[in-house]
Simulated scan of single mutants.
Amino acid sequence: MTIDNAPVALRCEQPRRHPHPTVKAQAITHLIFERPDLDRAEAFLTDFGLIPVSRVADCLYFRGTGAAPYVYRVQRGSHARFVGFGLSVDSVADLERLAALPGASAIKDSPHPGGGRALSLNDPSGFLVEVLSGQSRVPELAHRSALAFNAVDALPRINSTQRPPIAPAEVIRLGHVVLELADFQATCAWYTQHFGFIPSDVQLLPDGSPAVAFMRLDLGSTPADHHTLALAQTFMAAYSHSAFEVVDADAVGMGQRVLAERGWKHAWGMGRHILGSQIFDYWQDPWGDKHEHYCDGDLFTAERPTGYHQVSPDAMAQWGQRMPKSFTKPRMNGAAFKALLVNLRRSPDVTLRKLITMARMFG
C-alpha cells in the first residue's frame, strides 16, 4: 500500500476491490433529479450545455453530443432533490443476477429514451440505482474539434488563430457522480461487491479512515475514467456534484464565461485536480446543486493499483483557485440537524471526532 506523503494506512475494510462481484457495470448512463420548476431547470441545463431531447408530461430528458440517448432526467416534484443515477450492464443475465438481491425490482422494459430492459435498486444510503441492459444508442451530434495547441515543442497552428464560438460548452457525455454518505463502509461495499467498482484513489483522514474514495469501472484492459463514482464521508446522505466532459480547456473556459454572463452562480474553478487530473469548473443550478465541466481526465485499466493519500484542502487541485470553504459546507436545516443527531447515534462511520477533524480541515 502506497501512501503519498501520508504517515497513515487504511484502517477500514472499505474501500477495496471485491474478488467476485455480482456484475461489472459498464457505464454510467444518466442522472435523475426532481424539481418543482421544470422551466427553470431547463434554462440552467441548456446554458450549461446539455441538449433537450423531449418533454413527456412532467419529465424532461437531456443528452450530450455523444451516442447516449439521454444523460439527465428531471422529474417534477414538490421539492428539489437528487434521486439517483443509472448504470448499464452487459446482458439481461446480469440483470437477473441483480434481481436476486434484496429490494431489487422486477425486470421490466424501460419507458425512457433508448428503451432496453431495466430494474431498480436502492443502495444502503437510499440512492436509487437504475440498471439497464440493451439500451439503444443514437447518432452522435456534431461538436467542434479540440483546438490545435501551439506548444514549445510542437507548432501545429501556423497562419491561423484561435476563435472558439461564444456559446454554452458542448457537453459530450456524463462522466461521474459524487455522493456524500453517513454509512460509508456499507455503501462502498455494496458498489464494489455488486457492480465491481475499483478504488482508483482513496483520501484518508489522520486516523486512517477514508474521507473520499474515487472509484472506476472494471473494464479489464479497456481504459476507464479515473472515477465514475466517488463516495465521500460525511454525516448524512446527499448529492455532492456530477461532472460532464467537454472537448478541451477552451470549452471549460467558454462555459464559465457564458454561465457567468447569464447570471448563474459559480462554485469553484477553473483549476486542475490532483486525483483524476481533470481541468475543472463547477457551477450551481437554481437549487444549489453543483455541476462540473471537465476535460483531460486520467484513464486507468483494471491492473492499476489503488493509491492512498492524506486528505487536505491542498490535495484537491494542482493549480487554480484554492477550494472555497463553501464548496463542502453542508446545507444546515432542520432535516440536516436531525440526520446529524440520528447518525451520530446510529452509524458506525459517523463520530464526533471525525466530524470535528473534517470541519477543521475544510471549514
Rank of each mutant, 00 (worst) to 15 (best):
residue 58 D to V: 04
residue 147 L to D: 03
residue 71 V to R: 14
residue 175 G to D: 13
residue 46 T to I: 11
residue 354 K to Y: 01
residue 325 K to I: 07
residue 194 H to Q: 10
residue 57 A to Y: 06
residue 250 D to G: 10
residue 169 A to F: 15
residue 176 H to I: 07
residue 252 V to L: 13
residue 321 Q to P: 03
residue 279 I to L: 11
residue 65 T to Q: 10
residue 102 P to L: 12
residue 85 F to R: 00
residue 294 Y to G: 00
residue 57 A to P: 04
residue 327 F to Y: 06
residue 182 A to C: 12
residue 128 L to P: 00
residue 171 V to F: 14
residue 156 P to E: 02
residue 43 A to F: 13
residue 71 V to T: 15
residue 268 W to H: 06
residue 196 G to P: 13
residue 94 D to G: 11
residue 50 L to Q: 02
residue 155 L to D: 12
residue 266 H to V: 08
residue 248 D to I: 05
residue 305 P to K: 06
residue 168 P to V: 09
residue 92 V to H: 10
residue 12 C to M: 12
residue 123 D to V: 03
residue 132 L to D: 09
residue 198 I to H: 11
residue 58 D to G: 14
residue 71 V to Y: 10
residue 82 F to P: 13
residue 75 Q to F: 00
residue 184 F to Y: 03
residue 181 L to Y: 04
residue 197 F to W: 07
residue 231 L to T: 00
residue 228 T to A: 14
residue 207 D to K: 04
residue 132 L to E: 03
residue 109 D to H: 08
residue 158 I to D: 10
residue 119 L to C: 07
residue 129 V to C: 02
residue 198 I to N: 07
residue 77 G to L: 10
residue 268 W to G: 05
residue 208 G to K: 02
residue 39 D to R: 15
residue 257 R to S: 00
residue 160 S to L: 12
residue 272 R to F: 01
residue 134 G to W: 13
residue 22 T to M: 09
residue 170 E to D: 15
residue 58 D to T: 04
residue 96 E to S: 13
residue 186 A to L: 06
residue 139 P to E: 11
residue 73 R to E: 10
residue 316 M to G: 03
residue 170 E to I: 07
residue 271 G to S: 01
residue 325 K to F: 08
residue 345 R to D: 13
residue 286 P to T: 10
residue 268 W to D: 02
residue 195 F to G: 08
residue 202 V to F: 03
residue 322 R to C: 13
residue 134 G to K: 13
residue 19 P to V: 00
residue 31 L to V: 11
residue 174 L to A: 03
residue 44 F to S: 01
residue 66 G to V: 12
residue 220 G to L: 00
residue 155 L to W: 11
residue 65 T to C: 14
residue 146 A to W: 02
residue 264 W to R: 02
residue 260 A to Y: 04
residue 131 V to Y: 04
residue 168 P to H: 06
residue 212 V to S: 03
